[in-house]
Computed example of a mutant assay.
Amino acid sequence: MKKLKTIILMIFFTTISFGQSSMNTEKSQIKDLIIKSFDEIWSELNSKNIEKYYTKDFLLLENGEVWNNDSISNYLDNAVLKKPIPTRVNSFEFIEVKVLNGMAWVAYKNEAIFTVENKIIRKAHWIESATAILTENGWKLEMLHSTRAKNE
């Protein structure tokens, strides 16, 4: 009987440990999703990466404006035409990430530093939240809400 209890306890704790490890992996995937989407869409000004990171019905709510994939694509395609194109470097401070049943939400602080010829031309700070869903192609963002914060 003691052996049976020991085996049951070992299975129980292994299952709990695996569940926590899986949750941490998913949280890391959500953080990576945020970082890579900003780097590969907004820093590279690359509208072709929208479908890689955003769902087809993605919405960006930014300071009272509602953007979708088409409006984001138009913005990026026009931004590439303006010269010189600034270099954008993003940094993130994650506040909270929650994942449950193929859905996630994340809250974070976002800072971007824009430079031209190694000279800072602008710093921007936002506090943002996003939702993501697990698709057959991995995690994708379905909504992002962005509010400008004062420069620190």
Results as ranks from 00 to 15, higher is better:
residue 54 Y to F: 15
residue 5 K to E: 10
residue 28 S to F: 12
residue 136 E to T: 03
residue 36 K to I: 01
residue 116 V to P: 04
residue 82 K to G: 00
residue 150 K to Y: 07
residue 6 T to I: 10
residue 84 P to W: 02
residue 152 E to H: 02
residue 145 H to K: 10
residue 35 I to V: 13
residue 134 L to N: 14
residue 133 I to K: 05
residue 21 S to C: 05
residue 131 T to V: 06
residue 26 E to F: 10
residue 30 I to N: 14
residue 19 G to D: 09
residue 41 I to V: 11
residue 116 V to M: 11
residue 132 A to G: 07
residue 152 E to Y: 01
residue 58 F to D: 06
residue 16 I to W: 04
residue 135 T to F: 11
residue 112 A to Q: 01
residue 4 L to H: 13
residue 118 N to Y: 13
residue 150 K to N: 10
residue 11 I to G: 04
residue 96 E to F: 03
residue 53 Y to H: 09
residue 111 E to I: 03
residue 78 N to E: 11
residue 77 D to M: 09
residue 43 S to L: 07
residue 95 I to M: 09
residue 29 Q to S: 05
residue 60 L to K: 12
residue 25 T to V: 08
residue 104 A to R: 11
residue 92 F to S: 11
residue 103 M to P: 00
residue 107 A to Q: 07
residue 89 V to C: 00
residue 22 S to K: 15
residue 109 K to R: 13
residue 85 I to L: 13
residue 16 I to E: 04
residue 145 H to I: 03
residue 132 A to M: 03
residue 150 K to A: 03
residue 4 L to F: 15
residue 55 T to N: 09
residue 138 G to A: 05
residue 50 I to F: 14
residue 40 E to T: 01
residue 87 T to S: 11
residue 96 E to G: 08
residue 151 N to K: 02
residue 14 T to D: 07
residue 138 G to K: 04
residue 118 N to C: 06
residue 15 T to N: 05
residue 90 N to P: 07
residue 43 S to P: 07
residue 49 N to V: 03
residue 124 A to Q: 11
residue 49 N to M: 09
residue 35 I to Y: 14
residue 102 G to R: 08
residue 14 T to A: 14
residue 6 T to D: 13
residue 37 S to G: 05
residue 74 N to E: 13
residue 79 A to D: 05
residue 30 I to Q: 15
residue 65 E to P: 03
residue 36 K to C: 07
residue 148 R to H: 09
residue 70 D to P: 03
residue 143 M to Q: 12
residue 143 M to I: 00
